[in-house]
């Protein structure tokens, strides 16, 4: 009998490293829908994801963890909404190089609000070593200003350990919520 399937979403702006992050985790060769980037104004990448990236892992109990990467461009934002339902959680990658990064965060928060409210979202900020502003503290200040809470880490999407850190934080949040809920009803 086939095992159960679990879904994890990696979202974020164009060029933030979503495809790279999924490649770090997937045990299969990542299925990518890359096309020539016609949005040079927003990113200098030659190629970019236009539909989704897909990777997966087989788990010890026969289940499968499916990893989906959303396209980064705003014009594909309908894909974010299509892909999110039923997933375990969302890893959001933001690029500190981008001038409107806080505004982009706001757009993602609007789409993934239910995930952040249920403590099923973590945020990784790339290139914060080169671009110090906004600082991680600024992201927290922003989240507090809109009364939301999520872990924010400065990461390098090319480092597997950084992506695994995001997974660890996401799983820890979900586990803690389950344990605290169970404790409150017992």
């Amino acid at each position: 009998m086939a095992g159960n399937e679990h879904k994890l979403i990696v979202s974020g702006c164009i060029g933030a490293g979503k495809t790279t992050a999924i490649s770090q985790l997937s045990k299969i060769r990542v299925v990518s829908t890359e096309a020539q980037n016609n949005d040079i104004q927003n990113s200098s990448k030659a190629q970019t994801t236009v539909a989704m990236d897909y990777g997966e892992l087989s788990l010890d109990n026969g289940d499968r963890l499916r990893l989906y990467g959303t396209p980064g461009q705003k014009r594909f934002d309908y894909m974010w909404k299509v892909m999110a339902p039923g997933s375990l959680g969302v890893i959001l990658l933001l690029d500190n190089q981008r001038k409107q990064v806080l505004e982009e965060l706001q757009e993602y928060l609007a789409v993934f609000q239910s995930f952040i409210q249920e403590q099923r979202m973590v945020i990784g900020v790339v290139r914060s070593n080169e671009y110090h502003y906004p600082s991680v503290g600024d992201y927290y200040a922003y989240l507090r200003s809109v009364q939301l809470q999520a872990p924010v880490f400065s990461i390098d999407a090319r480092r597997r350990s950084d992506i695994v850190l995001l997974i660890n934080a996401l799983l820890s949040q979900i586990e803690m919520k389950i344990k605290l809920q169970a404790r409150s009803v017992s």
């Binding site: 991680v136 924010v152 949040q173």
Partner: peptide, 20 residues
């Protein structure tokens, strides 16, 4: 009210659980 930036600090495996 906020997590330490484990991306910069590095984290022992159980520190995210403590933070959570």
């Amino acid at each position: 009210w906020r997590w330490p930036d484990f991306g910069e600090l590095g984290a022992a495996t159980d520190e995210p659980a403590i933070a959570a």
